[in-house]
């Protein structure tokens, strides 16, 4: 009984590890954003899919970029900080202020992602889920409540259409 109930329950989240990573995300974010505590945080990632054809070998290659995504409702600003799955470091922050961007919307196809166009030249697609098990590819963090808050903010206050 115990074995089968465990089997059907699916994987369980290690909350200790998740909380530790959430603190690391906060520390890194505050390191590169001066007023970092004013922003709520979630983990997101980008996917860069490219096709290749090397003679008789062809297919597609996907590159995953991990992101710490911060948002402030009053300032209507999203800040994106690139990082790595083990949260050993991060890159510089990029600011997406609502009054400065070209457009923002939630994409449903091909993937469920939050799309921001800072200008006509390029865009960023932020994918986010409650929890992703693969620690080698993604930051191990449980964020059901935070993701719901971010989705609500993005759809009701940030999206431009």
């Amino acid at each position: 009984m115990g074995f089968f109930s465990k089997l059907f329950k699916g994987p369980e989240i290690d909350m200790e590890k998740s909380n530790l990573n959430a603190k690391k995300m906060r520390t890194l974010f505050n390191q590169v954003v001066p007023d970092g505590d004013e922003y709520k945080l979630i983990f997101g990632y980008t996917e860069d899919v490219s096709r290749f054809n090397f003679g008789f070998v062809h297919g597609s290659k996907t590159k995953i970029g991990n992101l710490i995504v911060g948002w402030n409702e009053e300032k209507e600003t999203i800040i994106v900080v690139p990082t790595v799955p083990d949260l050993s470091g991060c890159g510089d922050a990029t600011y997406y202020r609502r009054n400065e961007i070209l457009k923002a919307y939630r994409n449903k196809y091909p993937t469920d992602a939050f799309i921001i166009y800072p200008d006509k030249k390029g865009y960023i697609g932020i994918n986010a889920y409650d929890w992703l098990e693969d620690e080698k590819l993604y930051v191990y963090v449980s964020q059901e409540k935070e993701l719901a808050e971010f989705t609500d903010f993005f759809m009701n206050r940030y999206a431009t259409k």
Binding site: T27, Q31, C90
Partner: peptide
């Protein structure tokens, strides 16, 4: 050139912990 990298500040992290 825009690849500045900041490693996790263990001291700040521990204080937060």
């Amino acid at each position: 050139e825009n690849t500045a990298w900041h490693t996790l500040d263990e001291e700040k992290f521990e204080k937060k912990d």
